[in-house]
Design a protein around this nucleic acid. Structure first.
Lengths: 193, 193
DNA sequence: TTTATTTTTTGATTTAGGTCAATTCTGCTC
DNA sequence: GAGCAGAATTGACCTAAATCAAAAAATAAA
């Protein structure tokens, strides 16, 4: 499925624009573990995930990893701060599974957005959609105790939850892996009775 | 300053569109404490802050307040989830100071965005800007200890910090007011030597 | 299969931050 | 200026979650 098809799900798009998009988009298949971005690089490509699983994370000064987000099929990937401001990133983006991606460069995208004003409609909606997602994540992280954060995570990302390692979920929720392990045990006991 | 002027800071705008915006925007002055939104209402207006201070918050089940965000001069205000999806809000939006606002209704804005495609460019950039802000907030909330969260807050919002009550900042950072009070004391000691 | 490696779980202990109540401080109103 | 109400600070105590280390389980490799 080409990139234009993903955009057509948002709104109609002129034939001309579709062709232009196809011309600049690049189909890729990478294996698990591959980095799409490392810190200090500028995130200069926007990826659409056809299939696969991606996570973003960074290292803290005391040498532990923090996971910022995950995304899977039908998700859009870039380092938000770095891509949108074209400044050096502070996070890694890494594949957690073999993934099939479509890439567009920042320059090409910018050019298309100027050349085809109609495209601004699609990317406005895409940004707005992600704003809602981010808003929910902020609310999730402000849940007072660990159990509520985990429950909220399961509600918000039921499809992701079963695909991720426990330690990655823990990093995302700002919990020690050991803590999340205990929470999950308690949670299973609670839900099974 | 009318709303169109705020948008002109982002990019040029046709005279026609400027007039159309002026026609639907409403200038308001409200006093401190006034609610712009309460839970279960649908956030159906987008406000631009000419002057003043606004916060969003919600009540938890155990009866405490959590502050989601603050905004001041030159900020745009709505309940992100509620406004963008036109579903009932789960937060309050309240003025913390006398404020001068400009309001546009969701319906009018939607109409303008369809009638004047050029406007999509402005609101795409506006959304993208807020995505970056949200991304920074998420990173802030994932700082491991309370001191780092407070320091990060001061860096991110130096102008806000001195204008807000300590308890509101505490709610924003997911800290008990007493804890933040102790942190600030320690922080002042650290920075004064 | 056996070995090696990583992840998850579990236990024992420590600690950062929460809670609750008392006190001080600040800003208002009359 | 006196009196009041809300906010901030401080102290004493408690609890949820972090830490560290060791076992168990799951994955990958040989």
């Amino acid at each position: 499925m080409p990139l234009a098809t993903a955009l057509l799900k948002i709104a109609p798009l002129s034939e001309k624009c579709q062709v232009a998009i196809r011309a600049v988009s690049q189909s890729l298949i990478y294996k698990s573990g591959r980095y799409l971005l490392v810190p200090n690089q500028i995130s200069d490509k926007l990826y659409y995930i056809e299939a696969g699983l991606v996570r973003a994370f960074y290292d803290t000064d005391n040498g532990r990893e923090v996971s910022n987000w995950f995304d899977q099929e039908d998700g859009w990937v870039c380092s938000v701060q770095s891509f949108l401001t074209q400044t050096p990133a502070n996070e890694y983006i890494q594949l957690l599974e073999v993934s099939q991606l479509i890439a567009v460069s920042y320059q090409d995208l910018l050019r298309l957005l100027n050349q085809y004003p109609e495209l601004n409609f699609h990317f406005r909606l895409l940004s707005e959609y992600h704003l809602v997602v981010y808003d929910k994540r902020l609310q999730l992280l402000r849940e007072q105790d660990a159990l509520k954060r985990y429950q909220g995570f399961l509600e918000l990302y039921p499809r992701l939850a079963c695909r991720l390692q426990v330690k990655h979920v823990a990093q995302f929720l700002n919990l020690a892996p050991a803590t999340l392990s205990r929470i999950r045990k308690k949670f299973q006991e609670d839900t099974s009775k």
